[in-house]
């Protein structure tokens, strides 16, 4: 069933929407969540929570052409929150470590205005990512969107881990320059 038809089911408040979503995207969503939570049980719970959240958000959203990214964002946020609030120290610590890497993207003297919308930042980050070669863009996404470990990224792309870490280090520095240039920081 194509995305448009699935969204129509949501809009019609037909509960078949969830089963169709599960059939089409369930495995992929669990995979994304597992990459973050490293728990089969938790990833399945996050998947179910994602469907409920999608049910709430459609309408007013109508992700007819972007259903997969729509669901991906939801499950990413749910999975990260689970890691932070469940008392699973290692995953929580890992997420904190990734967040702390973002410190390098921010000049020490600046601060992000509280009113600054995440969406505006997201758009700026998108512009930055588009300026990168595809592989580097993907590596950046794998690290900071999908929360992959550097070792896994290295295996996926055939680099040594040190090379991946070096790439990420440089990209974080470039992102800082980009955000400064766009006046967001």
């Amino acid at each position: 069933m194509d995305d448009n038809a699935i969204v129509e089911l949501y809009l019609a408040r037909d509960e078949n929407a969830i089963s169709q979503t599960s059939v089409k995207y369930g495995a992929r969503l669990r995979h994304i969540s597992y990459g973050i939570t490293e728990s089969t049980e938790t990833s399945e719970e996050c998947e179910n929570d994602t469907y409920m959240e999608a049910w709430k958000r459609i309408p007013p959203h109508e992700p007819r052409t972007y259903l997969m990214p729509f669901l991906t964002r939801i499950i990413r946020a749910i999975s990260i929150n689970r890691c932070k609030h469940d008392n699973r120290l290692k995953r929580k610590a890992y997420i904190l470590e990734l967040t702390s890497e973002m410190e390098e993207c921010i000049p020490s003297s600046s601060s992000i205005e509280r009113e600054l919308e995440a969406k505006a930042l997201g758009e700026s980050i998108s512009r930055f990512l588009r300026s990168l070669p595809e592989e580097k863009m993907t590596i950046f996404m794998r690290r900071y969107f999908y929360l992959d470990k550097a070792t896994d990224i290295a295996k996926r792309y055939g680099y040594k881990e040190s090379a991946v870490r070096m790439m990420l280090l440089r990209m974080r520095s470039d992102l800082r320059a980009h955000l400064e240039k766009e006046g967001l920081l």
Binding site: R73, R76, A77, L96, L98, T99, S100, M102, E103, C105, I106, S110, S111, I112, R114, L116, A118, K119, L121, G122, E123, I125, S126, L129, M141, Y144, F145, L185
Partner: peptide, 16 residues
């Protein structure tokens, strides 16, 4: 971890 870093990390959810 500064709130700025957290905001930036969270903003990854808003990429295109």
């Amino acid at each position: 971890v500064s709130s700025a870093a957290e905001t930036l990390f969270d903003a990854m959810s808003e990429v295109d």
